[in-house]
Design a protein around this nucleic acid. Structure first.
Lengths: 240, 240
DNA sequence: AAGTGGTCTAGACCACCAT
DNA sequence: TGGTGGTCTAGACCACTTA
């Protein structure tokens, strides 16, 4: 650790802590910059540098002339930030979701490692099918720690209005800021072929995705099989 | 276009134009910030904001106490920025490269569209095999416009010391700043199975990658087949 | 010790949004 | 029209690299 932490970094940490604590709700405006600067006893320039970084990390959103707002997981932001599939023309659309099964279980060694849990810790195990235009696209097996989502039930999950990450945020105050995906090629097994409407031997993408909140805390992890008939996985390297 | 372009954006454009023109070579230091600010007739703060953005886009690199340098495509930066494959422990290493064939040809309609060329424009067609620890990993078919690389020959390509992008930069002054990849799952054909040491039916990643220089100018495009036996394609979403 | 980028301040003015 | 974030300046001091 650096001996001397710059002032704006400490302001950033304090702001992030306040956000995590829920001092301002997603979608709400923060106080104006001069007021915040006064509260933290720093100059406006320093306060702005702290906000700059939180905006770069998508925790905050600036709207000129209006204010600075806590980012909320709308359909549009989810689509742009966390959904990688595009059609032949490069366009994205949010998929429809169909819940296949919802169970309570215990974390295997592998799952526990990914979610930073003890082996055997209670988790939810959810199977979910995502489709575009009634064509099945992605088969997900999701695991999430029961500790993070204490009162989650099948009904709550199935009847949510928005995306899964939006549910985490609005109901449990858990905001996903980053996901890491590991992609391999595989042959779909019999069940996957049925659900994804493929005829063996059918190549699919096998993606292991883990979602993280602030401080790299794992939120959920999933194994997803993706049929790339009409949609491709899009990735941009460099120029971040 | 915005009516009023901020001063620091104009400074950034002028700096980028100078870089593109080769006023300073890759690896060289720029003049100190106060000198640059004076040259552009702006304050140091404004100059720094322009440099900030070019650093964020990896055209420049800052080294505190030393200077600001033109980014050069070393092995390390190539690996970190443009090579997405990791082993089971999450580590990256640069692959060995083996040239399979080098030909001159003409752009098909599809290739011409990707490279922003006229159909039938002269291109190089290169087949290349990338391996890690003598295990074949990636089979590439690369196409690049002859116009961008006028005197390129098989010997120059085969005997290069560093990566392909580093060759583009050091010999032709073309700096790749971004690549876009489109990933699908496929079954390897007979030739791919032989070269990648796979037994059919073998699922592989089929990636179409296009590399871009500043101003989104296409530099090369390739179709690559990737065997994901021991290495996976790693992708991070959100938190840019 | 000299020179570089990094941090921090204080204040002026501009562009945009809401009312 | 009042309030917000966005731009720009000038200058002081700090931290780091290099020799």
């Amino acid at each position: 650790m650096p001996r001397r932490v710059p002032l704006y970094k400490r302001v950033k940490q304090r702001l992030a802590a306040a956000l995590e604590k829920g001092v301002w709700r997603p979608g709400e405006a923060l106080p104006p910059e001069p007021a915040l600067a006064k509260r933290f006893a720093v100059s406006v320039g320093t306060l702005r540098k702290a906000v700059d970084e939180l905006v770069a990390e998508s925790l905050l959103v600036r709207r000129q002339g209006s204010g600075t707002y806590v980012d909320s997981h709308t359909r549009d932001t989810m689509l742009a930030r966390f959904f990688p599939m595009v059609d032949r023309t490069g366009n994205k659309r949010l998929p429809q979701s169909r819940l296949l099964s919802f169970r309570r279980g215990r974390a295997s060694a592998a799952i526990a490692a990914l979610l930073h849990l003890q082996r055997g810790a209670p988790v939810f195990e959810i199977d979910n099918l995502l489709s575009l235009d009634d064509e099945p696209l992605i088969l997900d097996r999701i695991r999430l720690p029961q500790a993070l989502f204490p009162d989650l039930t099948e009904a709550i999950f199935a009847e949510r209005e928005a995306t899964i990450y939006a549910l985490y945020q609005s109901r449990y105050g858990v905001t996903v800021v980053r996901t890491e995906e590991s992609i391999a090629a595989a042959l779909a097994d019999e069940r996957a072929c049925e659900l994804l409407l493929l005829t063996p031997p059918a190549p699919v993408l096998r993606v292991v995705r883990t979602a993280y909140a602030w401080h790299s805390q794992p939120v959920d992890t999933r194994v997803r099989l993706i049929a790339t008939r009409r949609h491709h996985y899009r990735s941009v390297l460099g120029q971040r």
